[in-house]
Design a protein around this nucleic acid. Structure first.
Length: 301
DNA sequence: TGACAGGGGGTGT
DNA sequence: ACACCCCCTGTC
């Protein structure tokens, strides 16, 4: 990612309040929302300002004592203002959703909800979310962000001077596997290349998938090379607003083992337990458990 | 400051 | 169960 001082000077709009029912309660929650594994194109600038890019949008976000604020490059102000609410799921009422989780009968969940007030699930562009999580296998956030940054800089259209969007799937289909490998993708390059060719051969397939019921959408995603259950659930949760999706990764396996006594359970068993125990908003619960477990690991608890 | 293991938010066979 | 691919991180 380009350091701020190397970015061409941009003319920014004024800071605008984000009309959110209940925004991130503190800086850590904002960081966890934007840079906690849902999205891979947000970077912290000096002064706790977050700089991010999604589809054709560029924005900065900060937390003040008056609440969450955003601004965009002046030329993008109108288009970003129309899209940022949906992207940040600020049109949802997270407090009401959280209240529907079984925290009354689950003390650990209650602690996690309290520990990250205002944490929310983003509503990212579907195609970009698929790309990001196709890159995520056995990679940590910082490495995935490097891949995304390289893909954007080398193969994505320039939105404003010096800032590029990610390549779209039709654009990815024009790249060779070698060009993808050069973006640090490793064995993931083949998955992305083959997925791009498939999508190019099936126009509308991705858009149709986004609109299907959860189970059908997940099955279709899982038919793509490099997409298994975990990746499919992440794409549906973070890129399609399907809060029933319950991605089971090593962090959730760890949490369910440590906090719920499910040591030795297989991922499919944990997925079943999670859907049953947490209900139709299991994915929201998952994000709180995930954030809490990452914090626990950082502080060696 | 630099080399060297070790391991990594998963999928496919 | 293990390969896939190779970058990051911690450590010496």
């Amino acid at each position: 990612m380009l350091p701020a001082e190397q970015l061409p000077v941009l003319s920014w709009s004024e800071w605008q309040p984000l009309p959110a029912p209940a925004g991130p309660g503190n800086a850590e929650v904002l960081a966890e929302t934007l840079d906690g594994g849902q999205a891979f194109r947000w970077n912290r600038q000096p002064g706790d300002v977050w700089f991010g890019v999604w589809s054709g949008c560029v924005a900065e976000i900060r937390l003040t004592k008056y609440g969450c604020q955003w601004r965009a490059p002046a030329v993008l102000r109108v288009s970003v203002s129309k899209k940022i609410i949906r992207y940040l799921a600020a049109d949802q009422d997270p407090a009401a959703q959280v209240d529907r989780l079984p925290w009354r009968s689950d003390a650990h969940l209650a602690r996690c909800l309290q520990a990250f007030p205002g944490l929310r699930i983003l509503r990212q562009p579907f195609g970009e979310t698929l790309l990001g999580f196709l890159c995520s296998a056995t990679k940590q956030i910082v490495q995935i962000k490097q891949m995304m940054a390289l893909l954007a800089r080398r193969h994505g259209a320039e939105i404003v001077p010096g800032i590029h969007r990610l390549p779209t799937w039709p654009e990815l289909a024009l790249l060779t596997e070698a060009e993808l490998r050069a973006c640090l993708l490793g064995f993931r390059a083949r998955y992305i290349h083959q997925t791009a060719l498939f999508l190019a051969a099936h126009p509308g397939w991705l858009e149709e998938t986004e609109g299907l019921p959860y189970a059908e959408a997940k099955a279709r995603l899982c038919s793509l090379p490099g997409v298994g259950e975990k990746v499919a659930d992440c794409v549906l949760l973070f890129g399609a607003g399907r809060l029933e999706a319950f991605p089971v990764d090593v962090w959730i396996i760890r949490t369910m083992g440590l906090r719920y006594g499910l040591q030795g359970w297989k991922p499919a068993q944990i997925a079943h337990f999670g859907r049953t125990h947490f209900g139709p908003l299991a994915g929201l619960a998952q994000q709180y458990l995930f954030a809490a477990e990452r914090r626990a690991k950082k502080t060696r608890i």
